[in-house]
Amino acid sequence: MASKKKSSFINMVVVLFIVSTIAATILAFVYQATKEPIAKAKLEKKKKAIGLVVPEFDTVYSPINNMFKIALAEGDSLECYPTKKGEEFSGYAIKANTSKGFSGTFWIMVGFTPDGKIYKTSVLEHKETPGLGDKMQKSKSNWSEQFTGLDVPNIKDIDGDGILIEVKKDQGTIDAITAATISSRAFCNACERAYIAFKKIEK
């Protein structure tokens, strides 16, 4: 076995410096090589999420390049991805969050047709309880289908609190997920926020 380098001060500094330099160089190289695929993977994911919630659209008009932000309040804005079919706007995918979830913030994508109806919804990321709150995902149960085609502008606001999308417990129209009222309320809250944002587009 070759003899070990002595632990002199110079040796230690030089070795650590060399090791770190080589490591940094390799990392910079890998970073450059994977930069494009990572950006592409993220873009694909976004495209897919938009495609899930709005009617079929022409890809000539890129919803991602035409994304704009809608401010709901100071420091609180949602991203909106408009889509076109021919010359007309055919849909709006709005990325909405809510902090009212059972285990913190979750994000959903809500698609609107120009008449204000919800086309479809899709969950982007969440930390809700597996088996209960996560039933809001399409893959877990068909609960979220009651939002498909939901005619928001024509919902009667029974309790007159100005909130349209609510669970039945709160005098609304949505059936809550059994044993997961908080998650259901939060989902409604996110949809409501998306709808408020949607109404601001038209103005």
């Binding site: 076995m1 070759a2 380098k5 632990s7």
Partner: peptide
């Protein structure tokens, strides 16, 4: 690289 690295670091 084991032989190039001083024990202490």
């Amino acid at each position: 690289v084991k032989n190039q690295i001083p024990d202490k670091v």
